[in-house]
Amino acid sequence: MGISKNTQRAIEVFVLIVAAIFVMPIILVFITSFKPEPEIIRFQGILPIQWTLENFREILGNPEEIPIFRWLLNSLFISSMVTLLVLTVSSMAAYALARLNLPGGRILFFLIIATLMVPPQILLVPVYLILNPLGWLDTPLALIIPAGAGAFGVFLLHQFFKGIPKDLEEAAAIDGCSKLGIYWHVILPLSKPALATLGIFTFIGSWNDFMGPLIFLDSVEKYTLPVGIALFQTSYYAEYGLTLAASVICTFPIIVVFLFFHKFIIRGIAMSGLKE
């Protein structure tokens, strides 16, 4: 397309170098977590001279001081619950708003979409004060329930549901299908890609959330992985080996999820940008 073969080759080399620079820190973390502490502090080359599992052994074998499995389970539980909640309430709401022609539905939809402009961070102080009398602070509920209020899921699914042909729904209605039946047997099965995209998005967002658990949780054993690892900054400040091993444990699941589902993730982001 108007570019010579040589130019294209030069471009590709450049792109490859930049891409390698972006991935390099991640690879470095993985490799360096297998180095003994002195080798980490005094850089002698990218690969370890002496491979060791000592960092992992120390971090996993110390559950009283570093309850990393606990944090892992907390993170898994909270992220799964948030994903389930968001998928359920958003898909029901999006179905009602996109397909049921509710009185006042348009105004409500507009109100919901308008809140996409509100940065979630400015809500932290009031949400904290609302959760306090409910007794939800320092419990997983503080991170799970408010997460269901986000408008992004409703917006994404609404746009998708709108595109599903009406005749399928009408055919199901003639066969005596109720609204609940149509939602469950027609809309949801047809929306699997959109639901998968939203689900993965929500899961990763919740898994990586930092400010929420930092503010809403207090007890070390209730922490999620990201906040737990932030503890290293204060307690194990100088021990890079431990920090790196903990980072690998926290990052590995996400990288795996990402490599498996990157198509959904990337499609979801592209969708959210192009629909505007």
Binding site: V18, A19, F22, V23, P25, I26, V29, I204, W207, N208, F210, L225, P226, V227, I229, A230, S247, C250, T251, I254, I255, F258, H262, I266
Partner: peptide, 11 residues
């Protein structure tokens, strides 16, 4: 290039 975006801010 997208991969770093996936990593939690603490790590």
């Amino acid at each position: 290039i997208f991969m770093p975006t996936m990593i939690t801010i603490t790590v």
